[in-house]
Design a protein around this nucleic acid. Structure first.
Lengths: 188, 188
DNA sequence: CTTTATATTGAATACATAATCAATGAACAC
DNA sequence: GTGTTCATTGATTATGTATTCAATATAAAG
C-alpha cells in the first residue's frame, strides 16, 4: 500500500469517527481532541489531514450531498411503491451500515440550524424535496396519494423521516417503524 | 411599576429574544452579544440579568418543561380526537404566538443533540412520550389506531411533529400541514 | 437636596479550544 | 547505509467569545 493510499485510509477513518461524534453530540459540542482521541491519534495530527474543524465538517457534508443527490433519480419506479421501498431500504441500511444512517442524520442537521452556514448551503443545494414532490404529484394524478400541496407533503415526509432517524441516532434501543406508518401520511 | 417588576420585564424580553435566536441559529451559533444587540442592550448588562449563557438557556428549557408537562394531562379527551385536536391547536397557536412555537422547537432540539447536557436532561425529564403512548394504547383498544408498539408509535408521532415544526421555524413561507396527514400515521 | 441603590456601559480579562510548530521517529528512495 | 520525505507528538500560541469590572448615569428614598 502506497503512502498516498495510507493517507486516504486514515482520512476516511477520521471522517467516519467525526461523523459518528457529530451526529451523537452535535458539531459544536464535539472537540477536535474528542475526535482525535476516538480515532485514535494526537490532536495536532488532525491538522495534517484536515486544515480545520470546519473543513472536516464540510468534507462530510459534501460527501453526503453527493450520495444524497441520487435519491430522486431512481428513475421510473411507480409512486405507490417508491416511498415504501425507499424507507424499507433506508431502515435496512441504517441497521447494518452506520455510515449511511449517520450521514442521513448529519445532512438533516446541516439543513437545519446549529452548524456553520456553509454546511447549511451545501446541504440545501441538493434538491431532494423538489424531486420527491414530483413523484408525489404523479401519485396524485394516479389518484393514490391524498390531495394537497405536493411540495408541502414532500417536506412533511422528509421532516418525518428526519425526525425518526434523529430519534434512532440517540436511542440505541429504538427500532425502525413500519414504513407503512409513514407512507400513510401520503396515501389516500 | 416597581423596580423589581421592571427587572422581571426586562428578563422576559431577554428570554424571548434569546429563544428566537436559539431556535433560528442554534444555541452555539448565537453569541451573547447577538442577543444583547437584538434586545437591545449592552453585552455586559446581560450578566446583570443572567449569570451565564447556559443559565439563560436552562431557564428557557425549564419554562418549556413546565408548560409542556401539561400536554398529557388533558384528561379524558377520547383518543380519536385528541391528536387531531392537539395538532390543530398547536398549529393555530404557532401561527399567532411565536412564543409557543419557538418553545416547542427549542424543547425538541434540547432533547436531541447539540446543547449542553443539563439542558438535555431537563428536556428529557418530561414524560410526554409515555403519556401519549398511553392515549395511543386506548385508541388501539378501541380499534381505531393501528397495531404496533404504542411507544414506538408515540415516538414517531412526536418525531414527525418536531421535524415539521423545525422546518417551519426555518422556512417563513411554509404553511402548517393538515393535522389529518400526521394523524393518519396512527389511524387504522 | 443628599444619599443610596440599581441600571448601564465599554473596555479589560479569563477561558476554552482551535490551530501552529519545533522536534522526533519511521518509512522510503537511491 | 545515507539522505529525504512524510507521519506523529506534545507543548505552545492564537483566537473568539463568555465573563468581569471599574466607572457613570439614572432613579428611588429619606
Amino acid at each position: 500500500m502506497t503512502r498516498k493510499e495510507q493517507k486516504e485510509e486514515r482520512k476516511k477513518a477520521i471522517l467516519m469517527t467525526a461523523l459518528t461524534l457529530f451526529v451523537k453530540r452535535g458539531y459544536h459540542e464535539t472537540k477536535i481532541s474528542d475526535i482525535a482521541e476516538a480515532v485514535p491519534m494526537s490532536t495536532g495530527l488532525m491538522f495534517h489531514y484536515f486544515e480545520s474543524k470546519e473543513e472536516l465538517l464540510l468534507e462530510l457534508v459534501k460527501m453526503g450531498a453527493a450520495s444524497t443527490g441520487a435519491i430522486g433519480k431512481i428513475g421510473d419506479i411507480p409512486p405507490q411503491i417508491f416511498f415504501t421501498e425507499f424507507l424499507k431500504r433506508l431502515f435496512e441500511y441504517s441497521a447494518n451500515e452506520p455510515w449511511v444512517f449517520n450521514m442521513f442524520v448529519l445532512m438533516g442537521q446541516a439543513r437545519r440550524a446549529g452548524m456553520p452556514e456553509e454546511a447549511r448551503n451545501i446541504a440545501l443545494s441538493t434538491a431532494t424535496i423538489d424531486e420527491t414532490a414530483t413523484i408525489i404529484k404523479k401519485g396524485q394524478e394516479a389518484d393514490i396519494f391524498r390531495e394537497g400541496d405536493a411540495k408541502l407533503l414532500s417536506i412533511c415526509f422528509w421532516a418525518t423521516v428526519q425526525g425518526i432517524m434523529e430519534e434512532m441516532a440517540l436511542n440505541e434501543e429504538m427500532k425502525a417503524p413500519d414504513p407503512e406508518w409513514i407512507v400513510s401520511m401520503l396515501r389516500k
